[in-house]
């Protein structure tokens, strides 16, 4: 079984009297340990697709199986558990909690684990070492550079050992040199066995992926 399997996914938004069909009949397959890029211009529906893949939103119709589980019609609470266990998010603007330290930020997803396990803190420290920020664990986000903040965000995304690392324009706020470092880090995570899905409009970013999926006007065109 693939990690992600989407069949005939549709998403319609109701804005006033008009219904806008943002996703039209999406079929997508993501194997384990793949590195895939989803490319599209703004308004193409790629953010909506990412939200559904990330279980932040549900499709209007269609079937979505994630890690052998049908998730398209789960309740809000159940989706929260899926996000917590299976998905790690990396956002364009890093989205760290400003009042928490680097370590506390990385530990954030562990707060919401159903069955608590030990050594979460050790795992967080190990991950921070992996992304090269072990010396900064007591820092606050505003004491870090953009690239460093994104590394913290990647460590946070990985702390619950998810099946899928979902990165939405991970280099959008970074200069090209730092962007390269971040993409190399994501590639490294992929070589360690993590499935990575990057959503971007940037050809250079998509180039790191093994496979690129193009989306336009709510349909996958390639």
């Amino acid at each position: 079984m693939p990690l992600c399997l989407m069949e005939n996914i549709r998403k319609t938004f109701h804005t006033g009297a008009i219904d806008v069909e943002v996703l039209k009949n999406i079929n997508l397959r993501l194997e384990r340990s793949e590195f895939v890029a989803i490319m599209g211009t703004s308004g193409s529906g790629k953010t909506t697709l990412m939200n559904i893949i990330g279980c932040l939103d549900t499709p209007t119709s269609g079937r979505y199986v994630l890690a052998d589980k049908e998730v398209s019609h789960l309740s809000d609470d159940e989706l929260s558990v899926i996000r917590n266990e299976h998905i790690g998010f990396v956002f364009q603007n890093f989205y760290l909690l400003p009042y928490a330290t680097v370590l506390e930020n990385v530990l954030l997803p562990t707060l919401y684990i159903e069955k608590q396990k030990d050594n979460r803190e050790q795992q967080a420290v190990d991950l921070l070492q992996l992304v090269g920020l072990k010396e900064r664990i007591r820092f606050k986000p505003n004491q870090l550079s953009g690239g460093e903040q994104q590394r913290v965000a990647i460590a946070r995304a990985l702390v619950n050992d998810p099946d899928l690392l979902l990165a939405d324009e991970p280099t959008g706020q970074l200069d090209s040199k730092t962007a390269e470092e971040i993409m190399n880090l994501l590639r490294e995570m992929n070589t360690r066995g993590k499935t990575v899905l990057v959503i971007t409009h940037d050809q250079n970013v998509a180039a790191y992926a093994q496979r690129t999926v193009q989306i336009k006007d709510g349909t996958i065109i390639e």
Binding site: G54, P109, L111
Partner: peptide, 15 residues
């Protein structure tokens, strides 16, 4: 946004 980050990380409504 903090609430959004927490929700994405797996926080339920009641959390």
């Amino acid at each position: 946004r903090e609430i959004g980050i927490r929700r994405a990380a797996g926080a339920r409504k009641r959390d």
